[in-house]
């Protein structure tokens, strides 16, 4: 099973690096948005809360534009039948989930320096800031992966994905914006509750995804 999962992840990264679709689209969106906000703000200082909101709106829509691609691509190109014939559903889902978490991590690593540079952001608690950003990233990518699998099997995917993603992602966005805001300001790290929530959310959504995916994938 482990070999199968690794083979899937290698295959998906090979395809991504050869056509660079998700990375190009997502990073272009994040870069353009950050640049536009930075120019529009014209040096006006934002509060930590505003920075946290802007950063996570960019992160959320970056995830929206890139993470659904992993399943939609298989359905659009008709390669999903090849996967169904060659791999158990559990391996397919695990590989796609890990791929999305890794891809979003890479995207975050590209977006963060751009945001910090253009918005001249001063982070008071860098360690907790990074903790919130990356735990939030894991929570977002794990919830968006199963939603991408569901949406890929439906029609009108472009409209459906943001609509069904928002209510599922809202608790994550709420918590992560509060945490990021505190880590940017002078309040720093107050309690581990937020981080525990993000971990618990990721775990729960992944467990539910494993129960659901077999039906989504085959039926």
């Amino acid at each position: 099973m482990v070999k199968t999962i690794i083979a899937h992840i290698k295959k998906d990264f090979r395809i991504e690096f050869r056509n660079r679709y998700a990375v190009s689209v997502s990073f272009s969106f994040a870069f353009t948005t950050t640049l536009a906000i930075s120019l529009a703000a014209g040096g006006i200082p934002f509060s930590p809360q505003t920075h946290a909101v802007i950063l996570w709106v960019i992160m959320f829509f970056t995830a929206m534009s890139g993470l659904a691609h992993i399943f939609v691509r298989e359905e659009d190109r008709g390669t999903s039948l090849f996967l169904r014939l060659n791999s158990p559903a559990l391996a397919v889902f695990t590989a796609k989930l890990l791929y999305n978490v890794l891809l979003f991590f890479v995207l975050q690593c590209m977006i963060l320096p751009v945001y910090l540079f253009f918005m001249q952001l001063d982070v008071q608690s860098p360690l907790f800031f990074l903790g919130y950003v990356f735990l939030g990233g894991i929570a977002l990518s794990s919830s968006l992966t199963i939603l991408a699998a569901i949406v890929a099997r439906a029609g009108a995917r472009g409209a459906l994905f943001p609509v069904i993603s928002l209510p599922v992602s809202l608790p994550v966005l709420w918590v992560v914006i509060q945490g990021t805001s505190r880590s940017l300001g002078r309040a720093g790290f107050s309690s581990p509750g937020d981080m525990v929530f993000l971990l618990a959310f990721s775990g729960t959504i992944t467990a539910v995804s494993y129960l659901l995916f077999e039906f989504v994938w085959h039926d």
Partner: peptide
């Protein structure tokens, strides 16, 4: 089957390796 579609971005060698790994 004619309905079966393969990955255009991969080589035959890579696809064979992937299939073998998938099917153990």
């Amino acid at each position: 089957s004619p309905r079966l579609r393969l990955y255009d971005e991969l080589t035959a060698q890579e696809l064979i390796e992937f299939t073998c790994a998938s099917r153990s």
